[in-house]
Design a binder for these strands. Sequence first.
RNA 1: GCCCCCAUAGCCCAACCGGCAGAGGCAGACGACUUAAAAUCGUCACAGUGUGGGUUCAAAUCCCACUGGGGGUACCA
Length: 836
Amino acid sequence: MSENENATYNFAEIQEKWLPVWDKIEPFRSDDPNDDRPRKYVLDMFPYPSGDLHMGHAEAYALGDVIARYWRHRNHNVLHPIGWDSFGLPAENAAIKRGLNPVTWTYDNIEQQKKSMRRYAASFDWTRTIHTSDPEYYKWNQWLFLQMYKKGLAYRKDSWVNWDPVDQTVLANEQVMPDGTSERSGAIVVKKKLTQWYFRITDYADRLLDDLDKLEGHWPAKVLTMQRNWIGRSTGADVDFVIEGRDQPVTVFTTRPDTLFGATFMVVAPDADLAGELVAGADRATQDAFAAYLTEVQKATEIERQATDRPKSGVFLGRYASNPVNGERIPVWAADYVLADYGHGAIMAVPAHDQRDLDFARAYDLPVRVVVEPIADEDGNLNSDPAASGIAIAGDGVLANSGELDGLRKQEAIAKAIELLVARGTGKAAKNFRLRDWLISRQRYWGTPIPIIHAADGTEIPVPEDQLPVVLPSTEGLNLQPKGQSPLGAAEHWVNVPNPIDGTPARRDPDTMDTFVDSSWYFLRFLSPNDATQAFDPAQAKRWAPVDQYVGGVTHAILHLLYARFITKVLFDLGHLDFEEPFTNLLNQGMVLMDGSAMSKSKGNIVKLSDQLEEHGIDAVRLTMAFAGPPEDDIDWADVSPSASNKFLARAWRVAQDVTSEPGIDFASGDVSLRRVTHALLDDAPKLVEAFKFNVVIARLMDLVNATRKAIDSGVGGGDAAVRESAEVTAMMLDMYAPYTAEDMWSALGHEPCVAHVVWPAADPALLVQDSVTAIVQVDGKVRDRIEVSPTISAEELEAAAMVLPGVVRTLEGRQIANVIVRAPKLVNIATKPGA
RNA sequence: GCCCCCAUAGCCCAACCGGCAGAGGCAGACGACUUAAAAUCGUCACAGUGUGGGUUCAAAUCCCACUGGGGGUACCA
């Protein structure tokens, strides 16, 4: 035992000791222009500054830090920045509730979080912090908006929008939950017709979808699937139907042009302009019926509308269309199962082959005509009469009653139908997306002002770039209470400006931007956070971007990631970037639960991060986060043991105290079996970390510490070189998880700070091969004996050795050998003849 | 309804290209140290991989069906 025999591990002391040292050294700066080591950009999703850090932050930053610290040890120049997504409704709502200024509330919270992050020892480059609510930041949101405006990618339109009646603002499609409630306030979203600003993300739908293929294997499959579904491309044809008494034909989109001959009626969305126009030409009674129906439809909430078992309803519009392929006269109906904002807001209905159309046809007694004869399924069942069975024939089949398409299979018929339409000039191949344009205006205060001025005649005038930023007016005298109109509109001295062109009276656009605009390009601002002349420095973008490793919650799988991908492509098209995907690799960490469910006030199961840090220490909490399981899995805090983590750290720390050799000693003289354990880990850990198996690395570190303990306490002793080697490797690797303990160990081992800069030693190949391995010998797949052999043994030798083993001989008695499989040096399996 | 993922010891989790089911931890039992306790150290036990089939010399691993859990999505023509 060493002189430190009585030393005990005291996490609080260690934390106080090293934090000021690191603050002084600034070990994580990444701004040395002469550093030409390979680079890694590791980015954690930046936080919203609502109160202090919680358990979720603690997990996310612990895991992101493992990756950032890992690459530093791998001798990379690592950029690991942090900032705050500091615009947004919570600040505004909190400010209203407490009568505070959102600025004060926001920046106080940022200071608190910053302090906590430093203590938490997240290895951020603190010289690069940004806040999206700073005019120096949101100036570039406005710049981005203007670039997009110039390209026609930002535009205003009058349309039905999602309205949150609690927050009194519009929401993007993406912010409406599947149950029709607001993502933020939880209120039931209603539809309102408003003039709003949009980004034309649908122009990028194909690229956003197709480029997901490039991310395959680098992003979680789940996220890729969610994005693909969200974009929702479907391919088919646009078909023009002539309407009796109307000059212009009506175009419908269909994925099944092969079923054109089976179209027996047409349906338009009741809330589409087309429906109103068509019914205007009908008789009084029809008009009244339609008006009543429309009122009823608009009264229905999103939730009611989306009920799956909702019966089909609709009204006849008193008009007829002509089927372009056979000239058949078909009635035109309005029904709310057709959506105004998908495709053309009108469909051709083929009840025999579409379940929704069939439901509607059966409800209103409309004809059903089979044009794709089904093929019997495996059990010989044939559904040849959908009108009777109530089940549409959606699968493959052979075309019938379809003129030139007769006899073709479904896929052939689709292609042929499109050919026919093109030849006749009544249609063409087409595709449609579920994705809608991104609604970016918000009627709230705490966001980026939209840099547009409205002239008296209604002309939109972009604010000249040299007049940016358009700074938010002070809240002084403003009523921030949600009232359905932007509070900025009431800031008279701010909103009233001279027209930049002719000086006549004009008004600023009073809306602010969705905060997802802020976060769609923030990863670029970190590259040159103080650049006053441009959003980001292209030279730095070339140096660092795109982000090599992005870390964050799966809650942003659609919204943030889709928007950031979109803006990146826009910036690429504008010539500002030379890449099209912002995040090369993505890791989604799970959530921290308590007793099986998400922590919430109402459940009363909140675990306070500060309590955990106080009780177990920062390192133990960080280690627990990483050890709990695979990072993408949720952690139930009830299932894990931070005190066990603490115990392990103490154990590792004591090993370092017990090393008695001097730094710099030649490890080659050390105990070989301990060295084998150390070098096996040096060799395996990179593969494990890069596969995000952080928990396995910790298990292996525990194994190494146990082996070292054993060596110290047995004959090898604390003076052995292998013990020092193991302790140093442990300190270096532990830095990824428990930086305070690692630094203290490193210091105890006689080194200067910081352990974070220690470069990963190469594993010695000679120490990775074993002297002998245990080969197992099976008979018919059951283990019957085992034998120690050289790792280089040949198959013949191994087989010969195996055949004479007692366990084998005994088992083979009376049996005939059918086959012998040899996988040298690990296994021999002897298969015998059955029934012998 | 449709799509995707998961299921290994009382619990959290490992197991490479199919090759001895166990790396690590929690909880547990026993022992050492101690006047005693805590801390520490040591030893031990515990599952045949959700269920049923199939492929294979060999299946936790591959295939099919089912059950249970989780997630996504939902009249998108």
